[in-house]
């Protein structure tokens, strides 16, 4: 599925300083029953965001109007647990294009990159600085520059670089996906399969 190209993102951010946010929290299993990729944003963080009677929980950050933006900033080990890509879909569908944390679970990271969300891994110290900046000013902006592989707290000018392999970077900057790449090498794959034991 095509996604928007990612180059430079300058945005306010939503802070979620909770560790080990698992994909069951991002999108609970009972909302995985669709056969199309539609509407998952409505159920993003469903049980943290809504009461049983579907009224919003006032103390949850997504229900707090002072926070908004295309960047989600979360505690370490974000996206652990289930491989459900629905978690990444829900985050994208809600409007986030970038998730910042000091540590990501592997499968979530892969899923995000595959659908056009940039996971940015920063040091724990820089993560704290981001939380502090947002706490001081909920309208504080961050600039994520994929080409330069840098993330900056605009108000203070503090910046850190992040890693991404050049293949994935190229894909994100151009809106390409892996399936296009694999389709272009099917003869090579077929020849490989010929030699396969199984």
């Amino acid at each position: 599925m095509a996604y928007d190209k990612f180059t430079v993102l300058k945005s306010t951010a939503v802070p979620m300083p909770i560790e080990n946010v698992d994909t069951d929290q991002i999108i609970p299993a009972r909302f995985l029953k669709a056969t199309e990729r539609k509407g998952f944003g409505d159920n993003l963080f469903r049980d943290w965001r809504f009461n049983n009677d579907d009224t919003p929980k006032q103390d949850f950050v997504l229900n707090n109007p002072i926070y908004s933006g295309k960047i989600l900033v979360a505690g370490k080990n974000f996206g652990s647990g289930s491989s459900r890509e629905h978690a990444a879909w829900a985050i994208y569908d809600y409007g986030f294009r970038c998730v910042v944390s000091s540590f990501f679970a592997d499968i979530f990271k892969n899923n995000s990159l595959n659908i056009g969300i940039l996971p940015v891994t920063v040091t724990p110290a820089f993560l704290d600085k981001i939380f502090t900046a947002i706490e001081a000013d909920p309208k504080a902006e961050l600039t994520v520059d994929l080409d330069k592989q840098s993330i900056t707290i605009d108000a203070t000018g503090e910046s850190e670089s992040f890693d991404i392999n050049s293949y994935k970077k190229h894909n994100l900057m151009n809106g390409f996906d892996d399936i296009d790449y694999l389709q272009a090498m099917k003869e090579e794959i077929a020849a490989f399969a010929e030699k396969s034991l199984y």
Binding site: S83, E85, N110, N111, I115, D178
Partner: peptide, 9 residues
Amino acid sequence: GIGTSEVEM
């Protein structure tokens, strides 16, 4: 385990 984009791959 893999995500759905990878299932498609």
